[in-house]
C-alpha cells in the first residue's frame, strides 16, 4: 500500500512534467493552429543549458534562469525564421518543416556537447527527502516538480482568464480575423505565445535534467507522450492538457510498477514479465486509442 502511494506520487510528478510540455504545445496549436514536432527540442535545449550552467557555476537558480531564457530565445528565433511562414499551411507542411527542425537541433546539440550524455547534480537544498507518508522517505525534488506543475497550471489559468493578454489569446484562438480587426498586432501575439510555450518546455527540460540523462534526442520520446496527452485532452485545451498529462503520467507509472506483479499473479509463467513490460510501455497508447475510438476529438474538444 505504501509502495502504491509512492508510485502514485511518482505518477503525479511525471504527469506534471508532461503538463509543462503539453501546455505550450496545446496553446500553440489552439492559437496558431500550428503543429510543432520540434517542441521537444526546446525541452532538450533547456536540459542541456541547465546542466552546463550548473556544472560551471554550481548554482541551480542561475542554471534555471539561463535555461529558461535560452529556451524562450530559441523559440522566438524558430518562430520568426521558420514557423511564421507556415501558419496558413496545412498540417502536413508543418509536420515536415518541424521534423527538419528536430534533425537540426539534435545534430546541433551533438556538435556542441558531443555524443556522451550529461548528468546534472541536484543542489544540496533539493536533494533531501521528506516523509510525506510516514516511514517512506520521498525525494523532495519530485515534490518540487509537482509544486511547480501546480503553480504553472494556476498561473496559466490566471494569465488566460484574467489578463488582457489572456483575453487576446482567447480571442485569437476563436477568431483570427476578429483579433486582427481589433487592431491587435497578431504577429507579436503569435511570437509571444510561441516563446511562452518554448519557455515552458525549457522549464520541463530543466526539471527533467537531474532525473534523466541529458542527451541528444531526449526530446522526441517525451514529445510523443506529450502528443498523446494533448490528443487525449483535446487539442487546444489547457484544461484537457492538465487532465491528459496526469492521466498519462499515472497510467504509465503505475502500469510499469504494477503490471508485472499483476500478470505474474495471473499467469505465473516466465513470459509474464516480458508481456508485462511491453503492455506497460504500450498502455498509454492503448489508452489513447480507446479514448479516441469513443471521443475522436479528445476529452475536451475545442
Amino acid at each position: 500500500m505504501l509502495l502504491f502511494f509512492e508510485q502514485l506520487l511518482n505518477g503525479l510528478q511525471f504527469g506534471f512534467m508532461l503538463f509543462l510540455l503539453s501546455a505550450g504545445l496545446t496553446l500553440v496549436f489552439g492559437v496558431m493552429n500550428l503543429i510543432n514536432l520540434a517542441h521537444g527540442s526546446f525541452y532538450m535545449v533547456g536540459a542541456y543549458v541547465a546542466a552546463t550552467v550548473m556544472l560551471a557555476s554550481g548554482s541551480f537558480v542561475l542554471a534555471l534562469l539561463v535555461a529558461l531564457l535560452v529556451a524562450a530565445a530559441c523559440g522566438l528565433l524558430v518562430e520568426v525564421i521558420v514557423l511564421r511562414h507556415l501558419y496558413r499551411r496545412d498540417h502536413l507542411d508543418q509536420v515536415l518543416a518541424t521534423f527538419g527542425l528536430i534533425l537540426f537541433f539534435n545534430e546541433a546539440t551533438r556538435m556542441i556537447w558531443g555524443r556522451q550524455p550529461l548528468f546534472m547534480q541536484l543542489p544540496e537544498f533539493l536533494s533531501s527527502t521528506v516523509e510525506v507518508i510516514p516511514d517512506v522517505p520521498y525525494p523532495l525534488y519530485r515534490l518540487v516538480i509537482i509544486g511547480v506543475g501546480l503553480a504553472v497550471a494556476l498561473g496559466l489559468y490566471l494569465l488566460i482568464n484574467h489578463t488582457r493578454l489572456g483575453m487576446r489569446i482567447r480571442a485569437g484562438a476563436s477568431d483570427r480575423s476578429m483579433i486582427a480587426a481589433l487592431g491587435v498586432n497578431i504577429r507579436w501575439l503569435y511570437s509571444l505565445v510561441f516563446a511562452l510555450g518554448a519557455l515552458l518546455a525549457g522549464f520541463a527540460g530543466v526539471m527533467a535534467a537531474p532525473i534523466f540523462a541529458v542527451e541528444s534526442g531526449m526530446g522526441e520520446s517525451i514529445l510523443i507522450l506529450t502528443f498523446v496527452v494533448i490528443v487525449i485532452g483535446g487539442i487546444g485545451s489547457i484544461k484537457g492538457a492538465l487532465l491528459g498529462a496526469l492521466l498519462v503520467g499515472l497510467v504509465d507509472t503505475l502500469g510499469r510498477a504494477f503490471l508485472p506483479d499483476l500478470l505474474q499473479w495471473l499467469f505465473t509463467t516466465s513470459s509474464a514479465n516480458s508481456i508485462a513490460a511491453s503492455l506497460a510501455s504500450m498502455s498509454i497508447y492503448i489508452l489513447m486509442a480507446a479514448i479516441l475510438a469513443f471521443k475522436p476529438r479528445g476529452l475536451f474538444p475545442v
Binding site: 521558420v82 511562414h85 507556415l86 518543416a97 521534423f99 534533425l103 537540426f104 545534430e107
Partner: peptide, 16 residues
C-alpha cells in the same frame, strides 16, 4: 558526420 545539420534546413526550405 553531422550531415543532419544540413539536411534539416534543406527540408525546411523545401517545405517553404
Amino acid at each position: 558526420e553531422h550531415w543532419m545539420i544540413l539536411l534539416g534546413p534543406v527540408l525546411i526550405l523545401v517545405v517553404i
